[in-house]
Design a protein around this nucleic acid. Structure first.
Length: 337
DNA sequence: AAACAGTGCAACCGCTCTGAC
DNA sequence: TGTCAGAGCGGTTGCACTGTT
């Protein structure tokens, strides 16, 4: 048999707390302290379960509770801590003064989790998931520009890039696949990817070591997402940038992609564009020009939130930061172990 | 203006874990 | 070693609020 309930629930009140109940609880705890929750309701004159009193106090009435919207910094901290600690909400709350575990849990489930899913990130593992990623929403966004393409580098995992490379390199063998280059082909006349072409190429090009259910699921999802993008994107220059970016990627001896943005920029950008990127007024991190995919850029969370004016920008940068974060030196993981 | 659907959040429930005794 | 209270967690519910039709 299970243990006896913490209190006799007959006749006990449930539901929202009234101001009078709150006042009684606060006054009692201020006088006697927060202890012996089983006897507290009776002593305080409350028709509540002790557990209910404890939750009410710890989650709402405690004087050090901070109410209101989570800040960018708090949000980022939650994500970083969650990637290390998982669903240990109390441990996360201990690092966020004034926030409770329940509040963080609710905020995670209602805001952060949804946003991660939208950005194609597994909220459990914090890894990019192609079957979660909605490329069309990213690439069709009004903010689609060079910055977002750069940030896409961090969204796409090696498998995704490898698949794209195989697709692009297969054009010599597969006449059905259109691989336009920027020497005369009219992009606004040629579709970027047709879903059926994508599927045909995928079926032919998946390497044997990627013949796993999860990889197949991801490639199928990528097919759908890329197909959606191609059918909806009307910005031919954007398509060209993506195409060139992928074309300039290389593969390692192990067959894994090793994408270097410098080759992309050198091959695609005009001198004017490179100059713009290197200007002091640009928020662009020049280190990315020489940073291979396998070398994550250091997290610079303070600067990444500067001058972001739109929710989309915040989401994209938010996602980018997620995948680039590193554990701060000040965070002692031994505390959690 | 009313009905409806979607969203956010406080609160609850049932269970497990932990530490004190 | 077993029992118990407190703490913590995942999941869920109910309600208020907001946006849409």
């Amino acid at each position: 048999m299970g243990r006896s309930p913490c209190c006799d629930k007959n006749g006990l009140k449930k539901g929202p707390w009234t101001p009078e109940e709150d006042t009684k609880l606060i006054q009692y705890i201020q006088t006697h302290g927060a202890a012996n929750w089983r006897n507290l309701p009776k002593n305080a004159g409350l028709l509540r379960c002790g557990k209910s009193c404890r939750l009410r106090w710890t989650n709402y009435l405690r004087p050090d509770i901070k109410r209101g919207r989570f800040s960018f910094e708090e949000e980022e901290t939650i994500i970083q801590l969650h990637s290390v600690l998982g669903n240990k909400w109390s441990a996360i709350a201990a690092r966020l003064p004034g926030r409770t575990d329940n509040e963080i849990k609710n905020y995670w489930n209602t805001h952060i989790r949804k946003r991660l899913l939208k950005m194609g990130i597994d909220p459990v593992t914090h890894a990019p998931r192609l079957d979660f990623l909605d490329l069309s929403s990213l690439l069709n966004s009004p903010q689609l520009n060079l910055w977002n393409l750069v940030r896409l580098q961090t969204l796409l995992n090696p498998e995704a890039l490898g698949l794209a490379l195989q697709l692009l390199s297969s054009n010599n063998e597969n006449p059905n696949f259109s691989n336009p280059n920027h020497h005369g082909l009219q992009y606004d006349q040629a579709p970027f990817f047709q879903p059926n072409q994508f599927e045909n190429v995928v079926n032919q090009q998946i390497p044997s070591n990627h013949n796993t259910p999860s990889f197949q699921n991801q490639t199928q999802s990528l097919q759908g997402n890329m197909g959606h993008f191609s059918m909806n994107s009307t910005n031919s220059s954007d398509q060209m940038l993506v195409q060139d970016y992928l074309t300039n990627s290389t593969t390692t001896s192990e067959g894994l992609p090793s994408t270097n943005l410098s080759s992309f920029f050198n091959g695609v950008l005009s001198d004017q564009m490179k100059g713009d990127l290197s200007s002091e007024n640009s928020s662009f991190d020049n280190s990315v020009l020489s940073t291979p995919l396998s070398s994550p850029a250091p997290l610079n969370s303070a600067s990444t939130f500067i001058n972001r004016s739109t929710e989309d920008e915040r989401e994209i940068s938010f996602c980018s930061d997620l995948l680039r974060f590193e554990i701060p030196d000040s965070l002692d993981l031994d505390d959690f172990m």
